[in-house]
Write a protein that binds this DNA or RNA. Structure first.
Length: 409
DNA sequence: ATGTCC
């Protein structure tokens, strides 16, 4: 077996952990053991090899539930995930000076704080949403109106259309990568931006209030849940599904716009897009059928990999990434890891490493190398090779990618 | 992760 089985002394609180040969912090284990105690967990919690302590729920966990949903398990970055596209370009088509490409990407896509020089960007989004964005928003607007009518607290000061097709900050990034045959890929990582955050936060607080009202005691406040059949259960399901759609559209629009702007920039020869390796969430909840039963599956830092389904497992700034094909492993509820997983906290990484370390670790990658991105240093993450080895019964590797340009939010 | 406030 490729997984370890954990449970309490009564044989309850079952966990199947794909953590052989990778670090697994005791704090993360303690956290996930609490979640596994919840009475509405269906069968067991599956842990992916990138497991680490998270806020609310353990990152790298697959939590199937029946009759209840835990909003803090999905978290605030609802629908966060990856998208990658293979282009007709090869390494030879790239200019010697990759900084031109990095600048073109930074000018094309609103990212991070207001660091962009693009006339149509402002802090966190668009000054004036481009026509294509307005059009994409039309498909989201009707459901959005219902969501904020039900939950006015979810409304953001700035309209979510202004952030559709924008990257965000933290670990969200856009990369140009080369695969094993030197083909160029465009890959990106982003989520549901401000609106998803607000939706997530408001329902996490609502669930905590509901638990107090019903005097339900929990091993951890962040395990507050909505029981099926209660008012907020349905509202949350609708809202979280909408935020996931928004996140997916956000990634799609960003990719479309990037391709268009890279073509316009004339830095690269004429190119087409060949292959899309899905646009997959790794922070989400979905109704799925497992072992013949309909259940809710929350993947917190995990990717769904049904048999033949493609997924993306990104490594850190200086490491490889993988396009994978699912093996449909039932024991994992058809899942794999969402990355390498942090080996140390951002604070610890900032304390341990210097800008010089970061420059060395990201050699050959056209990216920011200042003090602001030290917490993203590859050494702060688990070894991606070990992580891939620990889940070789969950996925096959289809493509191995190495970034040459990276834009961090 | 985000937005807001320090």
């Amino acid at each position: 077996m490729n997984y370890n089985v954990l449970s309490d002394e009564k044989g309850k609180g079952l966990i199947k952990a794909w953590t052989k040969g990778v670090p697994f912090e005791p704090e993360a284990e303690k956290q996930v053991r609490k979640a596994a105690q919840m009475p509405f967990i269906y069968k067991w919690i599956a842990l992916m090899p990138d497991v680490h302590l998270g806020k609310g729920a353990t990152i790298g966990s697959v939590i199937p539930t029946k009759g209840a949903i835990i909003p803090a398990a999905v978290g605030v970055d609802i629908g966060c995930g990856m998208m990658a596209v293979q282009t007709s370009l090869t390494a030879n088509d790239l200019p010697d000076d990759l900084s031109k490409i990095r600048l073109a990407i930074e000018m094309a896509c609103p990212h991070g704080d207001f660091s962009s020089r693009a006339a149509n960007h402002k802090k966190g989004g668009w000054k004036e949403a481009p026509a294509a964005i307005e059009k994409a928003w039309e498909g989201l607007d009707e459901a959005y109106q219902k969501i904020i009518a039900k939950n006015p607290q979810a409304e953001t000061r700035r309209h979510p259309m202004q952030q559709l097709g924008s990257l965000g900050g933290g670990n969200h990034f856009i990369e140009l990568c080369l695969d094993e045959a030197n083909r160029v890929w465009i890959m990106l990582h982003s989520g549901s931006r401000g609106i998803g955050n607000r939706i997530g936060m408001s329902y996490i607080n609502q669930a905590k209030k509901d638990m107090e009202k019903w005097m339900i005691n929990l091993p951890d406040k962040d395990l507050a849940y909505f029981p099926e059949g209660t008012e907020h259960f349905d509202d949350y399901c609708d809202a979280v599904q909408w935020a996931q759609d928004y996140a997916k559209t956000n990634r799609f629009m960003m990719m479309e716009n990037l391709i268009q702007e890279l073509r316009k920039s004339e830095i690269l020869p004429t190119f087409t897009t060949n292959k899309m390796a899905v646009n997959c969430h790794h922070n989400y909840v979905e109704k799925e059928n497992h072992f013949g039963e309909n259940v809710l599956v929350t993947r917190k830092g995990a990717v769904r990999t049904r048999e033949g389904e493609l997924g993306i497992i990104p490594g850190s700034m200086g490491a490889k990434s993988f396009i994978v094909r699912g093996k449909g492993n039932q024991e994992s509820f058809c899942s794999c890891s969402h990355g390498a997983g942090r080996a140390m906290s951002r604070t610890a990484a900032r304390k341990m490493y210097s800008v010089e370390d970061q420059i060395k670790a990201t050699e050959g990658v056209e990216c920011r190398k200042d003090s602001g991105v030290i917490d993203e240093i590859p050494m702060a993450y688990k070894d991606i090779e070990d992580v891939m080895a620990a889940q070789n019964d969950l996925v096959d590797i289809v493509h191995t990618l190495k970034q040459v340009v990276c834009v961090k939010g």
